[in-house]
Design a binder for these strands. Structure first.
Length: 285
DNA sequence: CGGTTACCCTGGATGC
DNA sequence: TGCATCCAGGGTAACC
């Protein structure tokens, strides 16, 4: 479910309630999502801990605690999310943060249980974990760094953009939207992009993600909602994702849905007219 | 090392 | 209505 804009929206929602509050009790309803710690040890460590702040790293949510209580890192993956209101599906509650003064509860729900929760003793330990699985954040990476990373691989530009070790935060929806805005075919070999194309791609990443954050992310079906249960508005005004057979908003060409190598089963949407591979560049096969 | 695939889970939509 | 099948916003381990 959540990509960078959805996770950023969650974090902003959590910032309204968590920082400065104490955890009267952390309730672990599903211990199977814990990584590297047991429910009893985590619950014991969190009793009475005060939240210093909430931040985002790629698609990960970071809850930092005061007084050397460490950091809780939550990876929502496909269906994880936070609720400040009573969750619509209580059977999906995996964690409950019971707060003090005044009493309140923040719920973490995850229908498919693909998400992960970890605890790190300090910021340095968390940083080591981040760097092991993630590249620079998609909103932080500079153009030169992006250019170097793209030059390193010949695989398709879309799988490269979705590789969290290349840059962190972009998933299936925003990869398609970013490539459409840049006029790039998703299977263009990453290393074949010109410096001008990389510059435009770099700008498009920032613009698409910023717009999606403004609109509080992308909602469809029973998936992602804000912490208040509201739908994100991005998919009401996007260009290609989920719009097979519709006309391209910039050239009116047909939007196609395909499956490409390196992304297993995930769908890719692109405009067949304004996102083409130049004939002098061979398409990977 | 670079790239690809199987698999982890469950719920909702669709088709028969 | 009931059941089977397919699909999904992510990520990792194992493999070639």
């Amino acid at each position: 479910m959540p990509e960078l804009p959805e996770v950023e929206t969650m974090v902003r929602g959590l910032r309204g309630v968590l920082p400065g509050r104490s955890l009267r009790r952390l309730e672990v309803r599903d211990p199977s999502l814990l990584q590297g710690c047991t429910a009893t040890s985590l619950v014991r460590r969190m009793r009475g801990a005060k939240v210093a702040g909430v931040s985002r790293r790629g698609k990960w949510v970071v809850v930092e605690l005061e007084d050397n209580r460490g950091l809780i890192v939550i990876q929502p993956r496909m269906t994880g999310g936070f609720w400040l209101i009573e969750p619509a599906r209580p059977e999906h509650i995996r964690l409950a943060f019971h707060l003090d003064k005044p009493e309140a509860t923040v719920w973490y729900c995850d229908a498919r249980r693909l998400g992960k929760v970890s605890w790190y003793r300090d910021a340095e330990a968390a940083e080591i974990a981040f760097c092991r699985s993630q590249g620079p954040d998609a909103l932080q990476i500079d153009r030169e760094d992006l250019a170097e990373r793209l030059a390193r691989t010949s695989r398709g530009i879309k799988p490269t953009l979705m590789d969290q070790k290349v840059l962190a935060g972009i998933g299936n929806i925003y990869a398609d939207e970013t490539l459409h805005r840049t006029g790039l075919h998703p299977e263009r070999p990453s290393s074949s992009l010109s410096l001008d194309e990389i510059a435009r791609l770099h700008s498009a990443i920032g613009e698409v993600l910023a717009r999606a954050i403004e609109l509080e992310g992308s909602s469809f079906d029973a998936g992602y909602r804000t912490v208040l249960g509201l739908e994100g508005g991005f998919l009401a005004q996007n260009s290609v994702y989920g719009r097979e057979h519709q006309p391209c908003p910039s050239c009116a060409g047909p939007i196609r849905k395909i499956r490409i190598a390196g992304l297993i089963g995930r769908p890719t949407y692109y405009c067949a007219v304004c996102q083409v591979i130049p004939t002098r560049i061979s398409r990977p096969r």
